[in-house]
């Protein structure tokens, strides 16, 4: 097992407000790490730190070999897949336009788009304008975006939010396939995962730090 991320006393401050107040964490590959906790516990901030989207204020952190204090976070972001709360696309473009833009930006072959769309059951919507998609379809498009990217680390911010039972089952199966390829996943959720086959490692957060679970 290799360490994907190692954090020691990681602090993130935005303005004068501490979003993370000393997080110690090691994430190894492959596997699923679940961050639980109430609103404002720091789950999203920790995920954004791991994704290289916010700067580390103090402490130390390495993700995929990139030092978050001194390294180039842009290089890290190319290797991490991020799925946020909302859809992350250009609403005016079609599903295919959006995926082609991402694939070209990352130098991924365009012929990987069709299998990704098929995997998330969006093949029939490939020429639909993104703003016409339902919330569930947008979530599936975000997952297709990640499948095309093939990141070394998947970071998912509340991916189960607003999914029905069918959607949850679909996502569990997809995450299982991803872990089977040797990839690590870190996700946030209000409740522990219901799918035991993923064997998630659950960490509870409160007040900007991990308060319960194996560090």
């Amino acid at each position: 097992m290799n360490d994907v991320a190692t954090l020691h006393d990681a602090v993130v401050v935005v303005g004068s407000f501490p979003l993370l107040s000393g997080v110690n964490l090691t994430i190894s590959t492959p596997g699923v790490t679940v961050l639980t906790g109430g609103n404002g516990a720091g789950k999203t901030s920790l995920l954004r730190l791991l994704a290289g989207l916010v700067p580390l204020s103090s402490g130390s952190a390495q993700v995929l070999g990139v030092d978050l204090l001194s390294g180039d976070r842009r290089l890290l972001r190319r290797r991490v897949g991020w799925l946020g709360h909302e859809g992350s696309f250009y609403d005016e473009l079609t599903v295919m336009d959006n995926l082609q833009f991402a694939a070209r930006a990352l130098g991924r072959p365009l012929d990987e788009i069709a299998p990704a769309l098929e995997r998330v059951a969006l093949s029939s919507r490939s020429h639909t304008v993104t703003k016409s998609l339902s919330a569930g379809q947008r979530r599936r498009l975000a997952l297709a975006w990640l499948l095309v990217r093939r990141p070394s680390l998947w970071i998912l911010d509340e991916p189960y939010a607003s999914l029905d039972d069918e959607g949850r089952t679909f996502l569990d199966a997809l995450l299982g396939d991803v872990v089977a390829t040797g990839t690590s996943i870190v996700l946030s959720a209000h409740d522990p995962l219901r799918e035991p086959a993923l064997r998630p490692r659950t960490l509870h957060m409160a007040g900007g730090r991990i308060v319960d679970g194996p560090h």
Binding site: L75, W82, E86
Partner: peptide, 13 residues
């Protein structure tokens, strides 16, 4: 737009 900025940043362009 909400979410788009983060997504595009993740492309590391």
């Amino acid at each position: 737009r909400s979410g788009t900025r983060s997504s595009i940043k993740m492309l590391g362009l």
